[in-house]
Amino acid sequence: MSLITPNKRPGSQKSGARRGENSRIYAHPLPLELVQAPPSWSAYILQLFGISGPRVLNPHCVGVYDAETRSVWVTNARDMMILWRRGFFGKGDLSRSEPSWRTRQISARKAAGKYLTAEEIREKRRAERKQFKLDRAAAMAQAAAEAEAAFAEGRRAEITTVIPSGATWKPQKSATDELPSTPPAEQAKEFDESTVPELEHLQLTLQEAFFLTWTLDCLTVLDPITSEPMTLEQIWSVCRDAYRPSQIPPSLSDVYSNRFDNPFLVNYAAYHYYRSLGWVIKGGIKFCVDMLLYKRGPVFHHAEFAVVVLPVYEDPTDQESSPFDLANASPFSWTWLSTVNRVNSQVQKTLILTYVTIPAQTRISTELLNSPACLAHYSVRDVVLRRFIPARMRD
């Protein structure tokens, strides 16, 4: 009897011994939890009348709006862990993704002079790769100089310089690599974790904050001036006005507010579309795109899809009178498209062109912009674009 395993996409799933632990920690896809009532005769009788049943635990997290960064800051450690572990919302301002700055600082101080932390190993490898490139460039320049000298003398070139390769090159160890970074007296001291302050906060984009506030009702946004909770209407107004220039006359305020092509509305339409389908969304600026789509989250798999948001005006005259310079609203060149597609193909991501149709100003009243009801008039269409590689796609 033989087991037939399906072909897995290389690099699509992150390996590691903590895979089972991650499945337990990140078991909830959203900051909501269904709690089943314990079985009993009273609960059974109440269920017959539709009175009792599973209860939804909705943890209310608190964040503060920051106008300069166009984001919402969550500073409470409990709220940060809830939003990150239940849906991977936000990003630590001192971390690459998960808000783990304090944990990394504690690990670094405990490992001082004893072993290398993950960050130190990463920096060491980067330094080694940089040194390898320098050594290879120097060897190639020396070999070229020897060839030119032999050609000038009219003799056959005999190149003695060995050009290093990635398989044979080894970094040179210095005497300082063997020394501990801290004296033995300091190593013997017990480290007090309470001395490390919590300086990091979870930073939510406006799209994430409004989705948590409006759709899930698990986030309370505070006004940065009064520290009072903002109503949904105030949050909606703040998100729309975030892309309005601060130095404009009051007479032009309505020009920026009463527009269906507001950057927040366009990006939120695409964000809500994919989030409602169960995808985990993270920023994609690293790969020249707007969003990255994860099936479960960045701790389980690498992102499989890269999304570029393309605004499309239902009425072309609205684009001519628009005060916003929306990215990718104008026709893009094939060079740009080929470049983005090639970048994402190299990292095994499928490029998706997401077209968000902006309703015409003449067809819909601008009074709908005062509430999220206007989002029903946006349409989202996605086109999958794959790079054809003849040598690889024959089989």
Results as ranks from 00 to 15, higher is better:
Ser321Tyr: 01
Pro249Gly: 14
Ile364Arg: 04
Val255His: 05
Gly11Val: 12
Tyr65Glu: 07
Glu314Cys: 00
Ala17Lys: 15
Arg387Leu: 07
Arg386Gly: 00
Leu337Thr: 03
Val62Asp: 02
Glu198Phe: 06
Gln348Trp: 06
Gly63Arg: 01
Gly113Tyr: 08
Arg240Glu: 02
Ser2Gln: 13
Arg392Lys: 13
Ala329Arg: 04
Ala185His: 11
Phe88Glu: 02
Phe151Leu: 12
Ala139Glu: 05
Phe49Val: 10
Arg394Lys: 03
Gly154Thr: 07
Gln203Tyr: 03
Ile45Phe: 10
Asn258Thr: 12
Gly278Ser: 14
Thr5Met: 09
Val35Gly: 02
Leu3Ser: 09
Lys91Asp: 08
Pro331Asn: 13
Leu30Val: 13
Ala138Lys: 11
Gln172Asp: 02
Gln207Ser: 08
Tyr243Leu: 00
Val62Gly: 04
Pro224Tyr: 15
Ser330Thr: 13
Lys110Asp: 05
Arg102Ile: 09
Asp66Gln: 14
Ser365Glu: 06
Pro311Asn: 15
Asp290Met: 10
Pro29Thr: 15
Thr176Trp: 11
Thr205Asp: 05
Val383Cys: 04
Thr215Ala: 15
Tyr378Asn: 01
Glu198Val: 07
Gly92Ala: 13
Ser174Gly: 15
Asn7Thr: 12
Phe332Lys: 03
Thr160Phe: 06
Ala108Phe: 07
Arg381Glu: 14
Pro10Ile: 14
Ile358Asp: 02
Cys374Leu: 02
Glu21Ala: 10
Asn22Ile: 02
Arg18Val: 00
Pro184Cys: 15
Lys130Ser: 11
Glu148Ser: 12
Glu120Gly: 04
Ala138Ser: 06
Phe324Leu: 01
Ile281Asn: 01
Thr354Glu: 08
Ala149Leu: 08
Ala270Pro: 00
Pro250Lys: 15
Lys189Asp: 05
Thr339Trp: 06
Glu314Lys: 04
Gly284Ala: 12
Tyr313Cys: 01
Ile159Tyr: 10
Thr168Cys: 04
Ala376Asn: 10
Glu33His: 14
Met80His: 03
Val72Trp: 03
Trp336Ile: 06
Leu3Cys: 06
Lys110Ser: 06
Arg122Tyr: 11
Val162Cys: 07
Arg240Gln: 12
Trp279Arg: 04
Glu186Cys: 00
Thr69Ser: 12
Arg96Glu: 10
Phe191Leu: 11
Pro59Phe: 12
Pro390Gly: 14
Glu367Thr: 11
Val380Leu: 12
Glu367Gln: 09
Lys349Tyr: 03
His28Ile: 09
Glu153Trp: 07
Phe49Glu: 09
Leu206Arg: 02
Ala43Gly: 03
Ser330Ile: 11
Ile121Trp: 04
Glu119Gly: 03
Thr205Pro: 00
Phe88Ser: 02
Ile364Pro: 01
Ala149Arg: 13
Leu212Thr: 05
Pro99Thr: 15
Met81Leu: 11
Leu277Pro: 00
Tyr273Gly: 01
Ser97Asp: 11
His377Thr: 01
Thr160Gly: 14
Tyr313Thr: 07
Tyr378Ser: 03
Glu208His: 04
Val196Leu: 06
